[in-house]
């Protein structure tokens, strides 16, 4: 469920953006798809093994192992989120990755917003700089949205 597990902010923020993966499949269907692939792939491999061509089996098993790792990674990160909020004179960047939560606070007046545009690589990163420390935000957002967040944030921080 999107939003579940994100703690409430203590105060009403002036600005708040949450960036999170959209877990469009859901855990239950994820493992059903995995099961269907397992049954198909291993079923074929077993069928061939019954005909004497057992060498399909190790490849099939290996592939299903890799697929399992991929799906498990997705599963562990399905609930990841990042939040940037501006409350009073603090800029708070919080994130949860695979169950681990981190929280950074910056002074609003000393925080710089930077968008590292990389035209060559078709990519951009939103970064906050404070006292020589950088923290990136919003890698899960589509590029256009990242640009909007950067624009709004910059305006807000420059306002005072």
């Amino acid at each position: 469920m999107p939003g579940a597990g994100i703690p409430l902010l203590s105060a009403e923020p002036e600005f708040c953006v949450v960036s999170r993966r959209n877990d469009s499949l859901g855990s239950r269907w994820r493992w059903r798809v995995y099961a269907s692939l397992c049954i198909l792939s291993l079923g074929l491999a077993l069928g061939f093994a019954a005909l004497g061509a057992w060498m399909v089996l190790p490849y099939s098993a290996l592939e299903m192992a890799v697929l399992y790792l991929a799906f498990r990674w997705i599963e562990r990160h399905a609930a990841d989120w990042e939040r940037i909020s501006v409350c009073g004179d603090r800029v708070i960047v919080e994130r949860e990755r695979a169950g681990t939560r981190t929280r950074r606070e910056f002074n609003r007046y000393w925080t710089r917003v930077e968008v590292e545009e990389d035209a060559f690589n078709h990519s951009s990163r939103l970064k906050l700089w404070f006292a020589g420390q950088g923290v990136s935000f919003g890698d899960e957002l589509p590029a256009g949205k990242r640009a909007i967040v950067a624009r709004d944030l910059r305006r807000l921080l420059a306002a005072r």
Binding site: L40, A45, A53, M55, P58, E63
Partner: peptide, 19 residues
């Protein structure tokens, strides 16, 4: 989906050729 289902079959087939 098809690729995941059949690529091990190809890999197995050519490995058996090799052995």
């Amino acid at each position: 989906y098809l690729l995941i289902a059949v690529m091990p079959v190809l890999a197995g087939a050519v490995t058996m050729l090799l052995t």
